[in-house]
Amino acid sequence: MKTQVCIVGGGPAGLLLSHLLHLAGIESVILERRPRDHVLGRIRAGVLEWGSVKLLEEAGLGARMRKRGFVHEGTYLASQNRGFRIDFKARAGHPVMVYGQTEVTHDLYDARDAAGGVVIDRAEGVTLHGLPDTPHVTYVKDGTEHRVDCDYIAGCDGYHGVSRQAIPTSLLKTFEKVYPFGWLGVLTETRPVSDELIYANHGRGFALCSMRNEHLSRYYIQVPVDDPIGKWSDDAFWDELRRRIPHDAADRLETGASIEKSIAPLRSFVAEPMRWGRLFLAGDAAHIVPPTGAKGLNLAVSDVHYLSQALIAHYRDSADDLIEGYSDRALTRVWKAIRFSWWMTTLLHRFPDQTEFDQRLREVEMDYLEGSEAAQRSLAENYIGLPY
C-alpha cells in the first residue's frame, strides 16, 4: 500500500489528523493496534477548549457535539467546603464545552467512514522503517505482514506507542514529574450535583464533580496511587466525596451504584523534539498532563492543528517552513499547558509531605482567586485555552 501520510494510532489525534488532511485532498492511512470497540470504550477527558470546539466545527464535526454537548460558561472552585464561581465568558470571552472524548472519537470514526477513509484496526507489530528520510511502515494483520510506503509518518499512538521510541535516544530529551497520588474516578447514572464543574481543595485531599450528560455523572477524589480499588466500596466513595465538596453540593448529591470505577495515576511528561525528519509526534505520544487542567485531549487537537497546517502547506504550496517549525510551535503551547496543569494540581491537591503551613497557603490562594478579577482572568484564559 502507498499513501502520503501513514498515521500510527487510531485515537482522536490520529482520526482528526486524517480527517483534516482528507479535507485538503491529502491521502492517509491509519494503523490502530486495538479493535474499534476498544477505542470507543475508553473513558477519557470531557472538557473541550473553545479553540477545540471551533476547529471541530470548521471541520464539519460539530452537529452532534452541539446537540449533545454542554456549554459551560464558568466553573466552581472550593476550599474547605465553601465554593465560589469563576465566569469564563466574563473573564476570558469564551466558554468551554463538556463533551466526552468517547463522543469526539465516535464523531471522527463516522466522518472517516463516510469519506471512505482507510482505518486498519488490529494492526499488530507496527514497525517504523527508513527514518529519518525514507519512511515506510510494516504491520501484521490476521497473520500476514503488510507494508505501507509513505512520505511522512505521524505518531499518534500514545505514551506507550512505538513512534516516540523510534527517535534515537541521543536526540530525544524527556521531562517528567510523577505526582504522589492518583484520582479515583467513578461513573454513575445519576443527575450531576452541579450544572458546572466543581474543583475542590480540602485538607483530606482533592475532589472533582463533573458530568457526561443530564443523567450520567463523573466524580473523582484524590487517593494514594497504590490504593487497591477493592478498598473503595461505593458507599465509602460517596462518604469521602461528601466530606470534600461544598456543604450545599454535598446536601444535594445524588448517589447510586458505580458503572465504572478506576484509579488513574497523575504525571507530567514532555518529549522533545516532536519531529525527527519525516516522523512527527502528536498527542500523548509526545506529552502527558495531569487531568486537573483538562488539557490532554485539547493539546492533541492543537498538535494536530499545527501538523495539518504544515502538511497542507507542503503539499499545496511546496512550502516546508511549517514542517521545519512544527516541533517548536507545538511545544510552545504544550509547555504553557504543562505549567497550568501543574499549577492547578499543586493548588488543589494535598501532598504526602504537606504541612499545615502548606494547606493554609492553598486556602489563602483560593481566597485570593475569589477576590481578584486579575487572578480569575489568568485562570479563565488558560482553562478555556490559549490561542493557537
Rank of each mutant, 00 (worst) to 15 (best):
M1L: 10
T3H: 06
L20N: 15
A24L: 10
V29M: 00
L40I: 11
R44A: 12
G46A: 12
V47Q: 06
W50P: 04
A59P: 05
R64G: 03
R68L: 07
G74T: 14
T75P: 08
S79C: 08
K89G: 13
A92F: 02
H94M: 09
M97C: 06
G100V: 10
T102I: 15
V104E: 00
T105E: 10
D113L: 07
V118Y: 06
R122Y: 14
A123H: 02
G125P: 07
H129S: 02
R147Q: 14
R164Q: 09
Q165R: 15
L171E: 03
L171S: 01
T174V: 14
W183Q: 01
G203A: 12
G205Q: 04
P224S: 08
G230K: 05
R243Q: 07
I245P: 01
A250V: 02
D251G: 08
R252E: 04
R252F: 07
K261E: 05
K261C: 04
S262A: 13
M274N: 12
L281Q: 11
L281R: 11
A282D: 04
A285W: 08
A285S: 15
A286N: 09
A286S: 12
H287A: 04
P291K: 13
G293C: 12
G293A: 15
A294T: 04
N298S: 06
L299D: 13
S308I: 02
S308M: 05
Y315D: 07
L322M: 01
G325Y: 03
T332I: 02
V334C: 10
W335V: 05
A337N: 14
H349F: 07
P352A: 15
Q354M: 12
R360K: 14
E365P: 00
G371F: 09
Q376C: 14
A380Y: 07
A380P: 03
P387R: 05
